[in-house]
Design a protein around this nucleic acid. Structure first.
Lengths: 279, 279
DNA sequence: CACCGTCGATACCCGCCGGGTATCGAGCCG
DNA sequence: CGGCTCGATACCCGGCGGGTATCGACGGTG
């Protein structure tokens, strides 16, 4: 299977529409149809059920979509890492969620920079749930993840810290004076729904809360009395006076881990991980 | 980057010889040279240092070799898993080292077969160190690994059992009567060197012992008084009267784990793993 | 019910690129 | 200095990837 065929397939499988997929691929529709047919014939597998009104994935097609995305990521990673190995021998890219680990990250960067043989570290801030993909496709070398929110499947990890969670409420809200709250309390606050985060596939679950992509967005909504949230304690350091925090003892504890792609073979990366573990 | 280019590159990088690589790829040498040049131009990276006497990998080339192999495995896995999803909706392939887990494996298979909704499980026995690759390129769904010998990098695992190790000696050897032996004792037996197992890259380390690929081979060599070995206790069940065992308390304990590729989404696999954990 | 719009499939054409053969040229050897 | 090895270059050809034009099946609609 050629990567070109895989890219075509993924485009059609995501759009479920040959015309739009062709547009996205900057080509005409007939050669795309033909390429998919050829792929199906070579694999000996039907990937799509087509009618003139709708295109749907078969079971095998769903498997190829998932596996094919991973394979394309691996190819992209190979290309990117090769380019980086050639041009700058130096530099690590660390990715984390915008607005998370605001205490740990500067400490880690400072401590690592003080090590002998440290290389420059670029920090890449991304939306929720993007870290894993950036690691897998070679745009980043190492990530800070927060279990159990992020998935560390297929990555090597070391645990760094564990912390409890606190409820974040608009300043002056009646419940803001409470000593503690339970998850059930927070979920049931009238008029302040919990936000909806994007799932692994980038889609949002159904529900009443506002859709959010990062912490800045969320905090603004809370300050505006449009939402409440439960976040790790360390978020407190970047909160303003317009929100209040209340401990939530029965919320799951959050573990911050440092994660990297398996089989990484870089002295610089090993040094950064060693520094992180010692913190 | 197309997979064709990657396959060409990997062939040349492994042979370090354009002529032989072309032969292996069943093509003529000039188009191969041209393809590699094009790849280098498109990446903007020199992958090989060539002289008319020798071809060597650059640093960037070494990166592309490692990453490219992983990417090709991912593409192969996508193809194989798609075919299997289409043709037989059923069946899991479990891979383990020939001659290992001889007690655990039948128990696991029997217990799983008794579960409601169990699917047929094919058992694939392979040489040492091959399991990880078979999982990654889609030929197998799940593996039994033995830490710390096997590497579980990039796989999801659950621990099943932990056991000590015993020395395996020819029957009648003077040391066979001892209550216990230390690692140092075993390593220093005159005339009975420890065997050499293949490393991650399939090559054998230098040293005096015989090169072995699986346990059957090893046991035969021990019976012939050509080697001694230290193996997990559970190996005892498949030993004949021609060898003797002596516990080695200071040998590292061996953990048997069940391992599977991350992001696996199969009910059958989940059932097998659940059964294994309950054992 | 006939008309039309949508959308994937088919038919057909063209130019590029991947693969072939022949040959060159740089090193190392005897 | 001749000959050998081995990668690079030159040149040719056929297939395939991509384009346009068109068909045909299916629904929605006046």
């Amino acid at each position: 299977m050629e990567t070109r065929e895989l890219r075509y397939f993924v485009a059609v499988a995501e759009q479920l529409h040959f015309g739009r997929a062709a547009e996205r691929l900057q080509m005409a529709q007939p050669p795309l149809s033909r390429a998919i047919r050829q792929l199906e014939r070579r694999l000996g597998v039907t990937l799509f059920e087509r009618s003139s009104r709708a295109v749907t994935l078969t079971e095998a097609g769903a498997v190829l979509l998932r596996e094919g995305r991973a394979a394309l990521d691996a190819v992209d990673a190979a290309e990117r890492r090769t380019r980086r190995a050639a041009h700058g021998p130096a530099g690590l890219v660390l990715v984390t969620k915008a607005g998370a680990s605001s205490e740990l990250l500067p400490k880690l960067l400072d401590a690592y920079a003080a090590e002998p043989g440290a290389v420059p570290v670029d920090v890449l801030l991304c939306g929720v749930g993007q870290q894993e993909r950036l690691l897998r496709d070679g745009q980043a070398d190492v990530a800070l993840l927060h279990l159990p929110f992020d998935s560390a499947a297929g990555l090597d990890i070391e645990e760094l810290t564990t912390e409890g969670q606190v409820a974040i409420l608009p300043a002056g809200h009646p419940l803001a004076g409470r000593r503690t709250l339970s998850m059930a309390d927070v979920a049931a606050i009238p008029g302040l729904p919990l936000p909806r985060w994007p799932g692994r596939d980038g889609r949002y679950p159904d529900g009443p809360g506002p859709e959010v992509r990062d912490h800045a967005q969320l905090l603004q909504l809370i300050a505006l009395s449009r939402a409440a949230a439960v976040l790790p304690e360390s978020c407190r350091s970047l909160l303003g006076a317009d929100v209040a925090t209340v401990p939530v003892p029965d919320a799951p504890r959050v573990t911050t881990v440092i994660a990297w792609p398996p089989h990484s073979r870089s002295l610089a990366l090993a040094g950064l991980i060693r520094t992180a573990i010692r913190l």
